[in-house]
Design a binder for these strands. Structure first.
Lengths: 181, 181
DNA sequence: AAAGGACATGTACCTTGGGACATGTTAGTC
DNA sequence: GACTAACATGTCCCAAGGTACATGTCCTTT
C-alpha cells in the first residue's frame, strides 16, 4: 500500500502526471522508496477508478495529469495517522556483512571502500539538496518543509552507513572456512 | 536471491534446521532482513535439490538439519564477491515523512516521539548484543567477528533514525492543505 | 492425566516489486 | 529534412514477500 500512498501524497502537493511522479520518485526517493513507471501508471488507474484521484488535464503525447480528491485526501490522512509504521528495512549490505568472514580480506577491503564512497556520495547529494532547500530554492511551503525533513533523514542514514563501512574495514573479521563437513 | 544466500551463509557457520534458521533470522535479522518460515522451508528444499546443501541429520518431530556443500560454499562466495550490492532501502517512515505536513501537529509529535523511542530501544537491544559479543559470550571465531560487524551496523542505523526522529520533532513542518482543487 | 507451550514443517493464496519489451509523440538541432 | 533525445504510457511475466491456515510431536507443569 505504500506506493499507493506515496502517489497520493505527491499529488497532494499539486496535480501531476504519471511521468512527473515517476521522475519525483526517482529524484527524491530513488534510494528510499524506488518505484518503476509501470507500477505507477497501474496504480494511478486504480486510484482513479476508486475516486481517490481524478483527471486534472490532458496534454500532448497522451499526457494525463491527475489531481487528488477530497476522498483521496481523507484516505491519505487515515493512512498517515491511523496505521502502524512498518519498520522493516532490508539493507542487503548488512545481510552480506554477516558473511564477511567468507570473503578474501583484500576483496572485502575493496568492497568496503567502495561502499563507504557510495554512501558518502549519496550523503553529499542529499546535503546539497538540503542546502538548496534552505536557500529557499523550492519555496517555503509546508510540503517543502516536509521534504527538508525527509532529506535530513536520507543524509543521516547515508552518513551512518558510510561511517559504519569505514569502521567495518578496521574491524574486518579474520577469514574462515565454512563447516562443509 | 538474498534469502537464498542468507540461508547458505548461516549454514556455512554450521548445520541447522529450518526452524533454527527461522529463529536466527528473527533474532539477528528481524529488522534488517525479515524472513518467514514458509519461505525458508521452501528455499531449503530448492537448495537441497540443487546440491548446494545436503541433509546432515534427522531428529525428532521431523526435524531435518542441513549442511552446506562445497558447491554451496562456492556459490555463496561468488555471490559475495562477484555481484553488485543492492542499495535500495525502503524505509517506510522516511516515505511517510514526505507527507508530515498533512498530519495534525499533535498527532505528528506523538508519532515522532514513539518512533524515536522505538529506534532507541532497538539500538539498545543491539548494543547489548554487541556487549555480550565483546565479552566473548558467543566465541571468538571468524563468523562471530562478522556478526559483531553486522550488529554494529544495526546499532548505528537505529541511532541515526532515533536522532533523526528527534530532530524532525523540532523541525516539524507547518500543517497545510492539499491542492484538491 | 490433562493441558499448554515450544518444537517443527508444510500448503495455498494473494500482493508487491522488478525487468523486459513495446509504442508512439514532440521538440530541438545539425 | 533527418536524426536524436526527452516525453509519455503501457503490457506481460516472473520473482519475492507476507499472511492465513493446517498438522502433528514432544516436554514440562499442574
Amino acid at each position: 500500500m505504500s506506493l499507493r500512498y506515496g502517489l497520493l501524497g505527491l499529488l497532494a502537493e499539486g496535480p501531476a502526471s504519471g511521468y512527473d511522479l515517476a521522475r519525483r520518485f526517482q529524484e527524491v526517493l530513488g534510494q528510499i522508496w524506488p518505484a518503476q513507471h509501470p507500477k505507477i501508471y497501474a496504480e494511478l488507474r486504480r486510484l482513479a477508478d476508486e475516486g481517490l484521484i481524478e483527471v486534472e488535464s490532458e496534454g500532448p503525447r497522451r499526457r494525463t495529469a491527475y489531481r487528488i480528491t477530497g476522498e483521496g485526501t481523507a484516505d491519505l490522512r487515515r493512512w498517515l495517522t491511523g496505521t502502524e509504521v512498518d519498520h522493516t528495512m532490508r539493507i542487503q549490505l548488512l545481510l552480506r556483512s554477516l558473511f564477511f568472514w567468507l570473503m578474501p580480506p583484500q576483496e572485502l577491503a575493496r568492497q568496503l571502500e567502495r561502499e563507504a564512497e557510495y554512501f558518502q556520495r549519496m550523503a553529499q547529494l542529499y546535503r546539497d539538496y538540503a542546502a538548496r532547500k534552505d536557500r529557499g530554492e523550492f519555496g517555503t511551503g509546508p510540503s517543502t518543509q516536509s521534504m527538508r525533513v525527509t532529506v535530513e533523514g536520507a543524509v543521516r542514514l547515508n552518513e551512518a552507513l558510510a561511517g559504519w563501512a569505514e569502521w567495518a574495514a578496521e574491524h574486518a573479521p579474520e577469514p574462515g572456512e565454512p563447516r562443509t563437513k
